[in-house]
Design a protein around this nucleic acid. Structure first.
Length: 572
RNA sequence: GCGCCCGUAGCUCAGCGGAUAGAGCAGGGGACUUCUAAUCCCAAGGCCGCAGGUUCGAAUCCUGCCGGGCGCACCA
């Protein structure tokens, strides 16, 4: 049971009595006490009474004696609550016995599809894929831990007109050599070469067009070459996911090609529903409320004038597949903010068609861009998008260098492992620690710093605890009585008891910066505790209590970071 | 032109209806015969873009404006 919940449960009946109906007591942390309830203020108008009177009456009705050391009306009508130490120690003891750290599995499990990462076959992954991959993976981890059935979908760009030129380029290079060059991990140059030929060579362009037709028509050799490109790319992506420490596997690839033979049905069904409009030869849906540059209604083009299907058709087919066949009720799209309008149109169309209806709902987890030090979109010197692996390798290299200089006595393997955990952790944490919608500046110095709201700071706190346990030579006893001797221990206990509330909040908001912020507060509380409350030198009972607090902190940091996809290290 | 996102301390960001607006960094001052000082503590730092409005109460909600970014028919 987390503290906020406990206090809410105690106050709610009292508020209900006073207000004559259910009221959320609005319990939150307070700078003037442990917690405060703000609900009396909001009630004042409705009840036509002074808020202080309401608060006082609530206090008289609330059963708080056994959980609060002090509860008083303050200011214009706040209820300030100071939790009894006994309550804290009881709840901490309860936490210590719970391997889920107070977070219950969800009471209402559902099937959630998380659509994330989605790189393009035969193209390099770039920084643009980082956020989708990192945020989506955190969502998948967290929802899964809470007991939901999570289906990871990696909506690969593996279909469409570019594959004509890519396959032709492969043919031109010779299958063997082409595949060789392709698998070298330099996807970018393969694509650029193909593109260059396509742009300059008329004959090549024509062959590419025919190749697209052959691909869609199911020509055997073309299909085989296409598979080759897809498989090589998938292998490459999996290597990146491995480096990034992302839970996506080969089973999660569900490229656009998967929906290829369902596109006709999408168009037919939309037509049958009378939603299709012919516009310049293209089959379009005009969801209401969307207008274009010229002020005219904006179409969702499901079938192009040339008879090919547009990506909206694929998106609609995928959405139906997720709801009808995968049984999803929550559809998450971890896609950049620029695609907001497109997705809104797809969702609107699906809703109108009756494909997307409660309890199923779709959410766009949009995110901002990654900016360079100059405050502009991150680009390489040549103006191209920055390779994701390059970014990751730099993070690892920088962190490894830091680990080496701080611990010159370490062997290479330990140094490398630590550098990787810290470097990758830093880059992922930097992404998750600010509000998704914000653009953020990629700043190596800041994100690798041991100070501030960074992964290394949290990892460092964790590793210090491990160090204490190494010296203690024993694990904490979960049944050890908890003793709170001062404000630092008290503050730490309160933070520990707040994990469940944060996780519950993030379950629906998927705002991971709230979890990150919590972990940072926890680590900060621990550091203060560590400074003022010696563990190993304390007398036995106190030592046991402090070991328990340290152990709980470690478990919470580890679990919280794990949900964000970030590793902890034993030493730093 | 329309739409979306963002303007909070010098910098990077929290807070999104409640009390004196919070962190971290940088800059200033302290703390290592003591479990990792890669840490901790203290002080300083703000017309919350601007102007109206709603409210007992607005950084938070509404309207308008200003500034920055991004979208807006056959590429995904």
């Amino acid at each position: 049971m987390d503290l906020e919940r406990l206090l809410t449960d105690r106050l709610a009946p009292a508020f209900a009595t006073v207000a004559g109906g259910p009221v959320d007591p609005l319990v939150r942390r307070s700078p003037r006490a442990d917690f405060q309830s703000d609900a009396a203020l909001a009630l004042a108008r409705r009840l036509g009474r002074p808020p202080r009177d309401i608060a006082a009456e609530v206090l008289a009705h609330a059963a708080l004696d056994d959980v609060c050391a002090m509860a008083e009306v303050s200011g214009p009508g706040f209820l300030n609550l100071t939790v009894a130490d006994r309550t804290l120690t009881d709840l901490v003891s309860e936490l210590a016995r719970d391997d889920r750290l107070g977070v219950p599995p969800t009471a209402a499990p559902e099937t959630v599809v998380v659509d994330y990462s989605g790189p393009n076959v035969a193209k390099e992954m770039h920084v643009g894929h980082l956020r989708s991959t990192v945020i989506g993976d955190a969502a998948a981890r967290l929802l899964e831990w809470l007991g939901h059935r999570v289906v990871r979908v990696n909506h690969l760009g593996d279909w469409g007109t570019p594959f004509g030129m890519l396959i032709e380029h492969l043919v031109a290079l010779g299958e063997a050599e082409g595949a060789d060059e392709f698998s070298m991990g330099d996807l970018g140059s393969f694509y650029r070469e193909a593109r260059a030929k396509f742009d300059t060579d008329e004959a090549f362009r024509e062959r590419s067009r025919r190749r697209v037709v052959a691909l869609q028509g199911g020509d055997e050799r073309t299909r085989r070459l296409w598979r080759l490109l897809v498989e090589q790319s998938e292998r490459y992506f999996l290597a990146v996911y491995d480096l990034l420490d992302v839970t996506l596997t080969g089973d999660d690839f569900q490229g656009e090609s998967v929906y290829h033979d369902r596109l006709g049905a999408v168009v037919d069904d939309l037509d049958r529903l009378g939603l299709l409009v012919d516009s310049d030869g293209a089959a379009c849906v005009f969801p209401p409320g969307f207008t274009g540059r010229d002020g005219e209604p904006l179409p969702l083009i499901v079938r192009k004038r040339d008879g090919g299907y547009g990506y909206p058709a694929t998106d609609l087919a995928a959405l139906r597949h997720r709801i009808d066949e995968l049984g999803a009720t929550r559809l998450l799209y971890v896609v950049g903010l620029p695609q907001r309008q497109h997705l809104a149109m797809v969702f609107a169309t699906a809703a109108t068609a009756g494909w997307l209806c409660p309890p199923a709902r779709a959410e766009h987890l949009g995110f901002g861009s990654i900016l360079g030090a100059d405050g502009r979109m991150l680009r390489s010197r040549t103006g191209e998008s920055v390779k994701l692996v390059g970014l990751l390798e730099e993070a690892v290299a920088r962190a490894t260098e830091l680990a080496r200089t701080k611990n010159p006595d370490w062997d290479d393997r330990t140094t490398a492992e630590t550098g990787r955990a810290v470097g990758i952790g830093a880059i992922k944490y930097a992404d998750l620690a600010t509000d998704r919608a914000q653009d953020y500046v990629l700043d190596w110095e800041r994100m690798l710093s041991l100070d501030g709201n960074t992964a290394p700071y949290l990892q460092y706190a964790y590793s210090r605890i491990q160090s204490v346990f190494r010296r203690a030579g024993a694990a904490a006893r979960p049944d050890a009585p908890v003793i709170l001797t001062g404000p630092a221990e008290r503050a730490l206990a309160i933070e520990l008891l707040g994990f469940a509330a944060v996780v519950a909040e993030v379950e629906w908001s998927l705002e991971f910066h709230r979890l990150a912020g919590y972990l940072h507060r926890l680590a900060t509380s621990f550091s203060a505790f560590y400074e003022r409350c010696p563990v190993l030198r304390a007398p036995d009972e106190l030592r046991q209590s402090r070991l328990l607090l340290a152990e709980l902190t470690a478990r919470t940091l580890r679990q919280g970071l794990h949900l964000l996809g970030i590793r902890t290290v034993r030493r730093m």
